[in-house]
Design a protein around this nucleic acid. Structure first.
Lengths: 219, 219, 219, 219
DNA sequence: AATGAATGAGCGTTCATTCAT
DNA sequence: CATGAATGAACGCTCATTCAT
């Protein structure tokens, strides 16, 4: 058991170092040699824990992703109203990416475009998470909070696409400094649309319920 | 003149082949050797036209992108109303990507994440094109068609992010088969929002106006 | 320890093969591939021991040179008289080059003209050795054995230049077969000059003190 | 005829440019492309005048060498005394190298070590010139000016070796700045030897006939 | 005579991966 | 469990040289 623990710890350590290196240089530019050096381990030893370089890459998001989506699921149970749930989801994404820049880099710049990753367990977690978004949208439609004629796949694509675009831009250019500040305007925009209206009745569900009242202690 | 033409033709031919290969295998997986073979040319000759493998890659979008954005600019002059213009823009993107799958692959899966590409002339064209979207949004805000409190960067991000997400998904999974059918729902969604409303007055600008029939007489 | 030894042995083996190949074909004409083949090792393995082809080249003289110059220093301590010391030095050079033709080739035909080699540790050893010649000349001047008005740099240049010329010629043409036979006439010539004299008093220091059991019949 | 002239001029121009490039970068680092560019000619055209890159290299010294050795022959006829003739020869070499640094570089760093060059017409000229030195030495021996027991090959090697060493050092390090100031001390040294003598009878031929005002202080 | 275009032939170097110890 | 040592397998890129025009 202690042995298993140790192995798990070692594995996590390698993943941590690999995440840094992959995020910094991309998959191809990164080398096992560099990862080994920075993890103070031999190259050969890395192959004791991971079958290939790509296998190591694919192992990176598993934990973080699970963490995020578990948290998401937890939050969604506490919140009422599809709009507020969406806001919570978007916030959680933005917050997580903002505070895990390496994770964000790896997801947005490397894994998102790797077809082999799609069949990975790491991606399974992500797919599960995305289903939650679908569920919330459908919930909103069913409850009458959202328009009946919505295409949930499209709405989900708008939400995720926007998030990914903002995060990718943030990674590539460094701007904007604070991703979270886009959460509210973004949700507002998606909920209400960009069209101006004579008189805008504020639906109850639009009352912002700030997420900030959570303690987010990440080391 | 004929000489120049010939060189240009050769160059274009190489670009065409390279686009296919890069789109099919990604940048790293693709080899100059394969491109040369398929272009029925020697590897060395490729280096007569392009300085490096990456230089060749960066040369691919230049023309197509310019074509698209020129067309976009042309259309935008003919269309009245910011919403309709946005619809036109989105349609043009979707249509172009749909009909240039390789171009789409290269942009979405390879170039979008290459920092060196950002400083390329190919990217300059794209940046110019994106400015047009900004302009349309600002125009809509100024004319009162859109809400005054919009953050144009955000709106642009929603539009581009959504497009990129849909296109990327389309490339990665093969579905949905028809990108263009997303144009109207997407624009509707973004303009009106996803919120259901008691009575939804249709703003004049929401009247769908097919792109092909220009000249919109708003009586 | 045994491990270190093995690596060192391997390294030396590669150096040995490389010396042969470089000496035979010159630097550019030689290929890593050939060296690897002859050393019965993979090309990649060579790069485990040496960073570049040039690095491998530069590693060749290090040991041999050190050996020679150490021996020189040892001998110089045993010999009295600057002239005899010079004779010893020249003999040692000629003897070494004669018996290490590859080493001679590499030094004379390849390294001597490589500016990057000047900043190498291998060259450092050589510079140290040359300093010894300077010291002997200065010693001879100080002791009155040599003329007071000598320019030591010039004298050294005469000695080294002559050696290099003879050795280079020997490498390039194969003649003369025996380099060592030039040692005595050369030193005599440099010590006494080529001028004929009415009566030539033999200074005590000119008594040849042979390094080897050479028969020097000075009648 | 005018055509021939033009071709000759063109050839000389190419040689001039090639000399600069080869001297500056060495044979391997130099490229036909660079030479062509600097000569404002196409690469292909160079091959109208020279069969190969090496052929071009070998063509460089022909003229300059002939010039020098013709001049040498001319001078030697005017001078009396083997020692003075040697002085003149050495001066001519040093002077020529000093004033044709590129020529010096090419001879000393590139051609001297090329076995194929030995069979070239360019080398023939040089061999012819060197024979003159032999002749002078033999003349000196026959006339009694030099010792009877001299090995002319050795003496010649001392002279040429020293020159080559000084020139090579000058090229490689940039010092000493004035090669000519070595002529007198060098000849003195070789003629008289480095040995100090109780009373030095100055042979008439030793009267220095300074070509330049010496004063040789090199650090 | 001049050259634009094309290429054959190589080569050094990198790295993920394996395996005996 | 850890790793030192070895390597197979590529690949991008360079350049001297050729030849049709």
């Amino acid at each position: 058991m202690a042995v298993k623990k140790k192995m798990e710890a070692r594995k996590r350590q390698i993943i941590g170092v690999a995440a840094k290196v992959f995020a910094g240089k991309g998959f191809q530019e990164a080398t096992i040699s560099e990862i080994a050096q920075k993890a103070k381990i031999s190259e050969a030893s890395i192959y004791e824990y991971f079958t290939t370089k790509e296998g190591l890459l694919f192992s990176i998001p598993a934990e973080s992703a699970k963490e995020i989506f578990d948290l998401m699921e937890f939050h969604l149970k506490l919140i009422r109203g599809a709009a507020n749930k969406l806001r919570s989801i978007v916030f959680l994404f933005m917050h997580s990416y903002q505070n895990h820049a390496e994770f964000a880099s790896i997801i947005m710049l490397i894994l998102k475009h790797n077809k082999r990753f799609l069949e990975t367990e790491g991606h399974l977690v992500i797919r599960q998470g995305i289903k939650n978004i679908n569920k919330v949208i459908e919930e909103g439609v069913d409850s009458g909070e959202f328009r009946k004629d919505l295409n949930p796949y499209l709405v989900r694509s708008i939400i995720i696409g926007t998030i990914e675009h903002l995060v990718t831009n943030w990674i590539m250019t460094g701007r904007p400094e604070n991703l979270e500040e886009f959460v509210d305007p973004m949700i507002d925009c998606i909920i209400e649309g960009i069209q101006s209206r004579p008189s805008e009745p504020v639906h109850w569900s639009m009352r912002k319920m700030p997420l900030e009242v959570k303690n987010n202690d990440e080391s």
